[in-house]
């Protein structure tokens, strides 16, 4: 009976584990998001004459390729590099996820892969908020979208292509629509770490000084008792009395 139960448990785990899905499960972009990103890139490609795309490789802990998420202004699943694209620019990232038992940590590297001379570099991407932590985080899809959509803006900045117009909405918006999830204090978000460090120094320093002062007082009090010797002998006699009782 035990064997049957154990077998059932193993089977249940085997069924559940694939459903949970590990971090970095592919595809990183859900189909609607990938299609929207491809459409945005297509608009940019038409204005700028550069095909844009993304290519995210996910490796397991042995650095063996688990899969790829690819797309471009040509469509989801299609690479930007094509005979129809004399100039192309791709956000490429390699995400390596290690197992929970592994000593090494998850890692991410990224770059701009392009045949356009003077194309943006990793440093350009970092300036616009692209970083490894975001690519390895919960919202890795948003990180990939942000990195890929920065390419046309960076290409314009580097004078490789004309900028895309930033059109402000001058009309009203549906009455039901409004901003949600208003963020917390900007000051705390920006300076909270410094505030906490300063607080730790103040409180820690005072606690240390107070503790040292009290300990010193006790020590000097004990020292006075040692000199008189009366206190200790009284305690001893009290203990002796207690034992006798």
């Amino acid at each position: 009976m035990r064997r049957v139960l154990a077998g059932a448990a193993v089977a249940a785990v085997a069924l559940i584990v694939p459903l949970v899905g590990p971090a970095g499960a592919l595809p990183i972009l859900a189909q609607p998001d990938a299609e929207e990103l491809a459409a945005d890139l297509e608009e940019a490609a038409e204005v700028q004459g550069i095909c844009y795309g993304w290519r995210v490789r996910v490796n397991d802990s042995d650095r063996i390729l688990s899969g790829e998420d690819v797309g471009s202004s040509r469509g989801v699943g299609l690479p930007a590099q094509d005979v129809s694209c004399p100039r192309w620019m791709v956000f490429e990232a390699i995400l390596t996820y290690t197992s929970a038992s592994s000593e090494s940590e998850d890692s991410a590297t990224f770059r701009v892969w392009s045949n356009v001379p003077g194309a943006p570099l990793e440093a350009n991407l970092r300036r616009v908020g692209v970083d490894s932590a975001a690519l390895l985080g919960e919202n890795d899809d948003v990180a990939v979208i942000n990195a890929t959509l920065a390419l046309p803006a960076l290409a314009a900045e580097l004078r490789l292509a004309p900028p895309l117009p930033l059109d402000r909405n001058t009309e009203g918006i549906p009455e039901v629509d409004r901003p949600t999830g208003t963020p917390g204090s900007d000051w705390l978000r920006t300076y909270g770490v410094y505030l906490a460090l300063s607080g730790v120094l103040v409180v820690g320093g005072l606690v240390w000084a107070g503790w040292a002062w009290v300990a010193g007082r006790r020590e000097s009090g004990t020292g006075e008792g040692d000199n008189g010797e009366g206190g200790d002998s009284t305690d001893d006699s009290a203990d002796a009395d207690g034992d006798d009782e």
Binding site: W187, L197, S198, V202, V203, G205, L206, V207, A212
Partner: peptide
């Protein structure tokens, strides 16, 4: 020594207080 520990603790607290004051004065 006890005195050295008290002085160090108060110095740390003082540094923290000055840092806090500068932080609040320049960014508050």
């Amino acid at each position: 020594s006890t005195r050295a520990q008290v002085v160090l603790g108060l110095a740390l607290a003082g540094i923290g207080a000055v840092a806090l004051a500068i932080l609040l004065a320049t960014t508050g």
